[in-house]
Each structure stands twice: as structure tokens, then as C-alpha cells.
């Protein structure tokens, strides 16, 4: 059976205009009278598709444009140009409709109410997605066993460790059983044990519900253990879009290969890019 595209991105672009300021008091005074703007090409003409049930690593060096892309796919940012279809929904036009279908986890931003327990938070998120009380309870029970949340489900979030908190963040974003899960550096700052359990969970979820996973991470093990396909972006452009196994055929460890590509030394991308983009 031919698998459906759940994400279709064409010629996506996003620039940020940031104020340029010279250093020191003199610079500050100057900037009052004449503001210089710098145009940052965060995402510069990106096109790709993702199929249903796929686990995609969307990686690249710091500032490559990964978060910006995710934010456009999830309806947070408006693109400057290009088109996006996520589950056949245009995030710029039907943000709420899309929100029912996707889950998002930003490792660096919290969505939970800190003073509430995870349990109350999950109930709140259940209500956000219009789940009935029974549905929410059933889902919480599933997530509780899946993530082993029992020990701290009744402790206010502010008193949890970072790892426990992230587990709860991910659980909360899964409460409505989303078809696509967007994860922006979900394992940032976590110890190896927690990282492992998060990976296991993502893999289980993908197997059980055929959830599509869109993952960014600077942790090579995350992507190696989870993803069969890799997209590498640099300076807002896609430089590699290939299967993990193809990428690994290059010389050295995955980390070495990826580093070379980040630095622009690896030629791998040129071979593959030919049949993806013109």
C-alpha cells in the first residue's frame, strides 16, 4: 500500500529582521536616530515531504533553521513564502484544526502549569483537546504505564526534576493521541537513563499508533537509534535528505560523518541532492 504524505513543504522561506546595534553607549545613542536592520535568512527555500508513520531526524548545526521550520509547521510562525500542508491542513489558515491533530514538545519551553500536579495538568490538556472525562482518564492511565509516571504524578510540576518534567511534557503533548509528534530537542539536558526511556517511548508510540515523528536533536544517539531518515539543514537550506543507512555508508562514525557535513567538507549530499532538489 502506498503511504500518504502527512507533511508537504514547498519552497518555504522565513527571514527575521533584527535590529543591529553597535556596542557601548555610543552605539545605543546612535541607534535611537538611525536603526539599522539585519536580515537573517533563517529558512531559505526548503522543500520536503514526510510519509505517514515515518521517524524523521531533522538536524543541523546551531542556528541552521530547525526550530524556525518546526514553528512554521506547527502554526506558531507565519512563513514569508512557500507552502505547507500538514495532514492536508494549512497551518497558517487552520491553526486550531491542525492543533487537534499534532503534538509538540519544545525541550526549552514549558507548557505545563508549574504549580499543578502532572495529573491535574493532564486533565487540563484533556479539556484543551475537548476529550471527555472518561477519555482523558483512560489516556492518562495508558500514558502512566507507558512513561512510568506513577511515582510523581501527584507532585507539583515545580518540584519535579528536569527529566521527570520532560516526561510529563511529552505525556501532556500526547494526551490527544496526535498523528504527528514534533519534538524540538526533547532530550536537552537529560541524563542517559532518561534519554533512553524517552527514546523507548517514542519508538513504542510509533509502533503502536503509527505516529509520525519529526525530531530535532543534537544528540547523535537520539537520531541514530530512532530515525530511518535524516534531513540535514545548514544556513536555512537542506543539504542532505537521505536514509540513515545510506548516510552511514560514508567513512567513519555517524558523528564524524555528520560533523563533516555540518562543516561543509562532506560530499555525500551532492550525490543525493541531485534526485531530490534541482
Amino acid at each position: 500500500m502506498e503511504k500518504q504524505n502527512v507533511i508537504e513543504v514547498n519552497n518555504l522561506k522565513k527571514n527575521f529582521r533584527v535590529k543591529e546595534k553597535e556596542s557601548g553607549l555610543k552605539g545605543s545613542i546612535k541607534s535611537i536616530f538611525k536603526t539599522k536592520y539585519q536580515n537573517i535568512r533563517a529558512v531559505n527555500n526548503i522543500s520536503f515531504n514526510v510519509k505517514e508513520g515515518e521517524m524523521l531526524a531533522f538536524i543541523g548545526p546551531n542556528g541552521a533553521g530547525k526550530s524556525t521550520t518546526i514553528k512554521m509547521l506547527t502554526g506558531i510562525l507565519y512563513p514569508d513564502s512557500g507552502s505547507i500542508r500538514v495532514l492536508n491542513i494549512d497551518p497558517t489558515k487552520q491553526r486550531k484544526k491542525l492543533a487537534y491533530e499534532i503534538g509538540t514538545v519544545f525541550g526549552q519551553k514549558e507548557q505545563l502549569w508549574m504549580h499543578l500536579t502532572p495529573l491535574d495538568n493532564f486533565k487540563f490538556f484533556g479539556a484543551i483537546y475537548d476529550l471527555s472525562k472518561e477519555e482523558t482518564d483512560k489516556r492518562i492511565k495508558e500514558l502512566k504505564t507507558l512513561f512510568d509516571l506513577d511515582k510523581f504524578i501527584n507532585t507539583p510540576v515545580r518540584n519535579l526534576s528536569l527529566g521527570q518534567r520532560i516526561l510529563c511534557e511529552i505525556s501532556a503533548s500526547l494526551i490527544h493521541n496526535p498523528k504527528i509528534l514534533f519534538l524540538d530537542e526533547p532530550t536537552i539536558g537529560l541524563d542517559p537513563v532518561v534519554k533512553q526511556s524517552i527514546r523507548k517511548l517514542i519508538r513504542n508510540m510509533n509502533k503502536k499508533f503509527n505516529t509520525t515523528v519529526f525530531l530535532t536533536s543534537h544528540d547523535i544517539a537520539d537520531i541514530e537509534k530512532l530515525c530511518k531518515r535524516v534531513i540535514i539543514v545548514n544556513h536555512g537550506k537542506i543539504v542532505v535528505d537521505d536514509s540513515m543507512s545510506n548516510l552511514k555508508k560514508e567513512e567513519g562514525t555517524l558523528e564524524e560523518i555528520i560533523s563533516r557535513i555540518y562543516k561543509g567538507e562532506e560530499k555525500h549530499h551532492e550525490k543525493v541532492l541531485g534526485n531530490i532538489q534541482s
Binding site: G75, A99, Y100, F106
Partner: peptide
């Protein structure tokens, strides 16, 4: 700080 609200269907 609008990010977390924008991904909610409300």
C-alpha cells in the same frame, strides 16, 4: 511566550 498557546486548539 505565545508559542505554547499557539499549538493549542483554543
Amino acid at each position: 511566550k505565545l508559542d505554547c498557546y499557539l499549538v493549542q486548539p483554543k
